[in-house]
Design a protein around this nucleic acid. Structure first.
Lengths: 140, 140
DNA sequence: GACAAAATGAGAGCCGTTCTCATTAAGAGC
DNA sequence: GCTCTTAATGAGAACGGCTCTCATTTTGTC
């Protein structure tokens, strides 16, 4: 199987490796600031602009995907085939859902709109944040 | 009888009426800038800060809802019971889907995560943007 | 009409992100 | 291993959406 459209970045620098390793290690989506902080902590100092540029490059090559969460920050994570996620309202954690729960909508609902993709965010509380008290209010 | 949880703003100003009328008239979600521009065009000049403050008030009282779209702007629209939307990749139009297509996910998928709400964005092209050439690539 | 308090307007400030440009270093050719 | 080209980086200024501050205006009550 070829890499086809997702050709790798043309130069292999330690900064790019650091950014990719940071995202891989996280296991969930991170903001650019957070990637910057973690990459610095893990090794040599890297510029914030470089992190943004590297993320942009990775986005273009299809290596990572980006998404907005409620707080207005853009989060980055390893690209996956689908785009369904669990978002914890307690700690802000943003992690992929294993599997897709969105069926193809009936055309009567979309009324002339051609659907080419989707993104689903399921809000709630992770096991850690639920804690003993057990919250439960919904959010948009 | 009490005013319940969604009590209206305490003072009725023409600025608040203008913002609400603008959102109602649009029929889809608008950015704060766009609401500001349309409200100005429709009547007296209103300050951008006032638009933001008014939207914040409306959000608190549950009159409107906010959401992020891919371009990083926050969009505002009349609050509805559910949160499924059609997003046109051509013109950026963001409008509610009539009805909900998201089933309750099986707990095996969410693994300890308690789901309290969701938001779905269906990407694609509206009838106007599809045009004669018929695009079709997907986006995250 | 007088008064208190909420709401507004104008613009400065904040903060995440992008741009600019001099410098560095990856990778190709020899 | 050395040289050369040019993509990539670092530092910090600039940008843009949004929020904050404070003097002024307006609403609703008495």
């Amino acid at each position: 199987m070829t890499r086809a459209a997702t050709r790798p970045p043309s130069r292999n620098t330690w900064q790019r490796q650091a950014v990719l390793r940071t995202i891989e290690a996280a296991g969930c989506h991170l903001s650019a600031e957070e990637i910057h902080r973690r990459a610095r902590r893990a090794g040599r100092p890297i510029a914030l602009a470089t992190v943004y540029r590297t993320l942009e490059t990775f986005l273009r090559t299809g290596l990572v995907e980006s998404a907005h969460i409620g707080d207005g920050l853009v989060r980055y994570g390893l690209a996956s085939d689908h785009h369904d996620h669990l978002v914890c309202l307690g700690c802000g954690q943003w992690r992929p859902l294993e599997g897709c729960v969105v069926p193809r909508p009936r055309s009567a609902l979309t009324r002339g709109f051609v659907v080419t993709g989707h993104r689903l965010e399921l809000y709630g509380y992770c096991a850690q944040c639920r804690g003993p008290q057990g919250r439960g209010e919904a959010r948009p």
